[in-house]
């Protein structure tokens, strides 16, 4: 599909969609959102890119093979179980680290839950794109 309008709009949209996916990922801890939905949104960006340009271009834009991306993501999620081990808690116990912070402000919370979510984000992105790339043939 080579439409100038679609291709022009895609340039803008892909960046916006990817940004929005990161926003969804971050806000997911206390509000609707999270790794899974953010991963879906991000994969929508790449699907759009593939439709507007071509499958090869989308693969090249991703840089990593989607299966590898999914594996890395899942490993990150697994890694979020490890801090619990070091502190002697059961696996996947949620642990928080607050950076900065002061009077009335807890600082930036970095948690194992966030690590888990980032892992899910990458895993979903990789898995969905792996499926899409197999089904879709130019």
């Amino acid at each position: 599909m080579s439409s100038v309008i679609l291709q022009g709009a895609t340039r803008l949209l892909v960046a916006l969609i990817l940004l929005f996916s990161v926003y969804m990922l971050m806000r997911g801890h206390n509000l609707p959102g999270g790794g899974f939905i953010a991963g879906l949104i991000a994969s929508a960006a790449f699907v759009l890119y593939a439709l507007a340009w071509s499958l090869q271009e989308a693969r090249a834009a991703l840089r990593v093979s989607p299966v590898k991306l999914a594996a890395i993501g899942a490993l990150l999620s697994l890694a979020s179980a490890v801090p619990g081990l070091l502190k002697g808690f059961p696996p996947f116990t949620g642990l928080w680290l607050f950076i900065g912070g002061g009077e009335g402000d807890k600082g930036i919370p970095i948690s194992t839950v966030l690590l888990f979510d980032v892992g899910i984000y990458l895993a979903v992105l990789g898995a969905v794109l792996a499926l899409f790339f197999t089904i879709e043939v130019d």
Binding site: F36, A127, V128, L131, T134, I135
Partner: peptide, 13 residues
């Protein structure tokens, strides 16, 4: 839903 999504996408493929 997540699991169902994965399975159905796989089945479609």
């Amino acid at each position: 839903i997540v699991i169902g999504f994965g399975l159905l996408a796989f089945t479609l493929a």
